[in-house]
Amino acid sequence: MPEMQETVREWLDTGKVDLFLGYKQVEGHPLPYAFNRDNLEELQDLTVSEARYPLEKLGAGILAVQPELKIGILGRDCNRRALNVLAVHQQITPGQMEILEVKCCPSPLRKHADCSSLEPRTYGSVKLEVGIDNSMPTARMEQFDQQTRFDKWLYEFQKCLKCYGCRDICPVCFCKECSLEHADLVETGGVPPEVPLFHLIRAVHMAGRCIDCGLCEDACPVDIPLRLLYRKVNEIVKDLFGYETGLSLEQPPLSILGEGASGVTDSHRAAV
């Protein structure tokens, strides 16, 4: 940890970044915090833990107001993918944010991962029987017959409290006007929200956007297997268009409009 604090100090000192978004240990809790040149002594409380917040989203929000800033963030592979997606959708300019990478993925050398979502949770017998085991691969889900698949998703979706936690925590959800709050698209004033429309709208919007960070599922108070749903969505995008979300600065196939759009081949058109 001291090495990391030194690196951040150096980044701030040399002007490589003006702000560093990381986590500060406050009374035992790691909270997202902006370290800057005026509070260098606070760097001793910079911490790395399982706690994850969409720091790149917070950074993009700051850059929207003060685009001249350079921001460093503590991040993992998923944060890098999120930055690519934010750049693709012109929420940031590539290079405005610098990632100080911490390890996340388990390896033979490192069985335990920092990333909380990599440790499958254990679920109760009812959820496993009637609903969906969130750690299930998409291929397993597809093996159920149509009725079972439908019932399982309905069971999961009906638990929704419409807290918008999945959207609010999502590092790549940045729209000012959200379809999920549009009265013409989703009926207002009831819980659960229109099933399965509410979740399918979000699923469609995650196509070519979701970077599989798992924050939505972490945030969901009722354990809806959102990650499984969005993972499938991006498998479809990959199968149909050969597009891998977050790995490049290439435009996603679903935001390309019109005949003259570059990068769209006849096979893409057939798929749409």
Binding site: F150, W153, V204, K232, I236, L240, V272
Partner: peptide, 15 residues
């Protein structure tokens, strides 16, 4: 359309 059909299939609404 191909995309939506696949998504519908995943949640058990195919056809």
């Amino acid at each position: 359309m191909g995309f939506l059909q696949e998504l519908f299939k995943f949640v058990g609404l195919e056809g």
